[in-house]
């Protein structure tokens, strides 16, 4: 397991929109490295013959029928929103990105 570099942390911080001071980057690079190495030891348990899995249970093809159920009322849907306007969720302006 390779370590995690200061640049990796800086990139992750950028992707996660977390503003980090240079000292924090140094600190986290070494700290995350230790954590990753600890977690990596789990992989030692699985041999070459164990395929990586995304699910702990041996399940597949779990489906629901295409049936409409009652949705939330707009009031309930918006009740946890920090702000709303015109029955819509209100969010701060989005900088420099367009989906």
């Amino acid at each position: 397991m390779a370590g995690i570099s200061r640049d990796d942390v800086a990139n992750l911080a950028r992707l996660a929109r977390i503003d980090m001071a240079p000292a924090e980057l140094d600190h986290l690079a070494s700290e995350l490295g230790v954590i990753l190495n600890a977690v990596a030891r789990v992989q030692e348990v699985a041999g070459q013959d164990v395929p990586p899995t995304s699910h702990p249970l041996p399940l597949q093809n779990v489906y629901r029928k295409d049936e409409v159920i009652q949705s939330l009322t707009p009031e309930a849907a918006l009740s946890a929103a920090p702000a709303s306007e015109g029955q819509r969720f209100k969010v701060p302006k989005i900088l420099g990105e367009e989906a």
Binding site: G86, R88, F89, K90, V91, P92, K93
Partner: peptide
């Protein structure tokens, strides 16, 4: 130039 955005899900 937008001040904020409104979302309909």
């Amino acid at each position: 130039g937008a001040d904020y955005s409104l979302l309909d899900y």
